[in-house]
């Protein structure tokens, strides 16, 4: 009897998601036992053609990490969708756009200009910018098209499930994989797997009081108390607007959560929700003072939308 097929693919990502799959350590052998690996470019043979030759739906499960940054990413995303029964957006980039989604604050040309012209160590008098098609003396070379905006996986194709995190916690990945291997039923389409159903605060051991914020502080210039809720201390922590599941790793390490697990269930826009929450607990009635307090948040978009800018409500103005 042939085993079901598994595909793991990376689009615009750092490889951390693949590492977190490897970090299930010895259990990777269980995966090997249960599945035929149809595709895993980081670890195994990669054949576009073979995938193209498959029947639609031939792959049982595809774990897709990385965002859609260029034409190749999009092409493979659509191809894998067609060939997979279950397509999972794996990790922050595929799920929400990820850290690299902050690039949507700039246009394509601005990014290229910064990297290839403005860098102090780059010497590029002819202002050469990589091209999708370039001629060398021996012939033509091609590169995929670098899009103006980055998109999450579900912005280019239909997605069945999401596994959040930057990267997903290996234990959570393992639990999902074992669940699937055991053949247990999956939740409704569109569900988030491998994470909790509440916000980070649920698992956070820090002491929480009623919140009233008079001052925002930065980790650069202040040391937080290790026992008390960071937000109460004025350090913006995205924990309240972030789904649980990572084990509150960052907060336990003494720094605020930045929200890589994405919004909790029911929350449409993680950044907007946190902004709304923070705005509500500013401890002042005086508009000038409120403005002064708010102005202490130096980088609102990078703070509230660190991982979710491309999938936020803000994205529309970009397109």
């Amino acid at each position: 009897m042939s085993k079901p097929k598994l595909a793991i693919y990376w689009a615009a990502s750092c490889g951390g998601c693949d590492v977190s799959i490897l970090d299930i350590h010895e259990h990777i052998l269980d995966v090997d036992k249960a599945f035929d690996l149809a595709l895993w470019p980081v670890a195994a043979d990669f054949k576009y053609k073979d995938v193209e030759a498959m029947q639609d739906g031939e792959i049982l499960l595809t774990l897709f990490n990385g965002a859609i940054r260029n034409s190749e990413n999009e092409h493979i995303a659509k191809l894998l969708r067609k060939k997979s029964k279950v397509l999972v957006a794996f990790g922050s980039c595929a799920h929400l756009g990820g850290v690299i989604g902050m690039a949507n604050l700039s246009k394509r040309d601005e990014i290229l200009d910064t990297v290839y012209n403005k860098s102090v160590s780059t010497h590029n008098p002819e202002r050469i910018i990589p091209q999708t098609l370039s001629r060398v003396k021996e012939g033509e070379l091609t590169l995929p098209k670098f899009y103006n905006y980055l998109r999450s996986l579900d912005q280019v194709t239909d997605v069945d499930y999401y596994i959040p995190g930057c990267p997903p916690n290996p234990e959570q990945v393992l639990a999902v994989v074992q669940h699937i291997i055991a053949g247990k039923p999956l939740p409704p389409k569109g569900s988030v797997l491998g994470a909790g159903d509440k916000s980070q605060c649920d698992e956070c051991k820090r002491k929480k009081n009623v919140k009233k914020i008079r001052e925002f502080r930065r980790i650069a210039t202040a040391i937080p108390d290790p026992e008390i809720c960071l937000l109460e201390q004025g350090f913006i922590c995205m924990g309240p607007a972030t789904r649980s599941g990572c084990g509150v790793a960052c907060v336990n390490a003494g720094v605020p959560c930045r929200g890589c697990y994405g919004p909790p269930p029911n929350v449409l826009d993680q950044g907007a929700k946190m902004l709304s929450a923070i705005a509500s607990v500013i401890d002042s009635d005086n508009p000038d003072e409120i403005n002064q307090i708010i102005s202490q948040v130096e980088d609102p978009v990078g703070t509230f939308y660190r991982f979710s800018l491309p999938t936020s409500l803000l994205r529309r103005s970009n397109i």
Binding site: Q200, D202, K208, K211, K212, C229
Partner: peptide, 22 residues
Amino acid sequence: NEELCSGCKLCNDICPFTAISF
């Protein structure tokens, strides 16, 4: 919704009608 509340207490002091308790 008890299933979703994480006890962050952000809402505790903002109710203008003091309807929220913990």
